[in-house]
Every structure is written in structure tokens, then in C-alpha cells.
Computed example of a mutant assay.
Amino acid sequence: MPGKARVHELAKELGVDSKTVLAKLKEMGEFVKSASSTVEAPVARRLRGALEAGSAPAAPAPAAPAASSAAPSAPSAARP
């Protein structure tokens, strides 16, 4: 894509939300204010590379069952 690309267009292209793209751009040191901000082509290329490289290990999050197993014991102890 020659010229400038808007953040929301890049987000749609990459299949992520605009907040993710904004956060990654800020992490990369780019000044962006909103989803309608534009970025230069070289920045967009770096962003694509960064998000595509980081998209595979973005799934590990299922650590909630351990916390939920401790919750039922508290109400039974509260009853006389």
C-alpha cells in the first residue's frame, strides 16, 4: 500500500482491533492518537511484521480454573 495507511485499515487487514494496533504502534515508539491516525508505509510494514511474528504465542491464558476451585469452600465455611 503506497503512501499512508489509517490505523483502523491496518487493524482490519491484520484481523485485530484498533486498540491492539494503537498499543503496538506506541510500543514501537510511533506517535498515534486514534484509529483514524495515519502511518507511513515503512511503519505499516514494521507493524505487520511485528504483529504477525507475535500473533502465534498470543493465546496462552487459561489459568482461571485454579482460582474458581477455591471459591466454593469459602461460602460453606461461612455457614454455621
Results as ranks from 00 to 15, higher is better:
residue 4 K to M: 15
residue 71 A to R: 03
residue 5 A to H: 04
residue 50 A to Q: 05
residue 72 P to N: 03
residue 22 L to Y: 02
residue 1 M to H: 11
residue 53 A to E: 10
residue 66 A to S: 11
residue 4 K to N: 13
residue 10 L to M: 11
residue 55 S to P: 02
residue 52 E to V: 09
residue 73 S to Q: 15
residue 60 P to M: 02
residue 76 S to M: 12
residue 31 F to R: 14
residue 70 A to S: 12
residue 2 P to W: 13
residue 2 P to S: 15
residue 28 M to T: 04
residue 3 G to T: 11
residue 43 V to D: 00
residue 1 M to Q: 12
residue 58 A to P: 01
residue 34 S to G: 10
residue 28 M to G: 05
residue 67 A to N: 10
residue 41 A to P: 08
residue 24 K to W: 06
residue 1 M to P: 11
residue 27 E to N: 06
residue 63 A to R: 12
residue 57 P to A: 06
residue 50 A to K: 01
residue 7 V to C: 08
residue 5 A to T: 10
residue 40 E to Y: 07
residue 58 A to E: 08
residue 13 E to N: 09
residue 24 K to A: 12
residue 69 S to E: 14
residue 27 E to L: 04
residue 8 H to S: 13
residue 16 V to I: 12
residue 65 P to Y: 05
residue 29 G to Y: 03
residue 33 K to Y: 14
residue 63 A to T: 14
residue 67 A to V: 14
residue 5 A to C: 08
residue 59 A to R: 03
residue 64 A to W: 07
residue 2 P to Q: 15
residue 1 M to D: 13
residue 70 A to K: 09
residue 44 A to W: 00
residue 25 L to V: 04
residue 10 L to W: 03
residue 34 S to C: 04
residue 66 A to I: 09
residue 9 E to Q: 11
residue 16 V to P: 05
residue 52 E to A: 07
residue 6 R to D: 01
residue 53 A to T: 05
residue 70 A to R: 08
residue 37 S to Q: 02
residue 71 A to P: 02
residue 28 M to A: 08
residue 8 H to E: 15
residue 11 A to H: 01
residue 57 P to W: 06
residue 36 S to C: 05
residue 56 A to S: 10
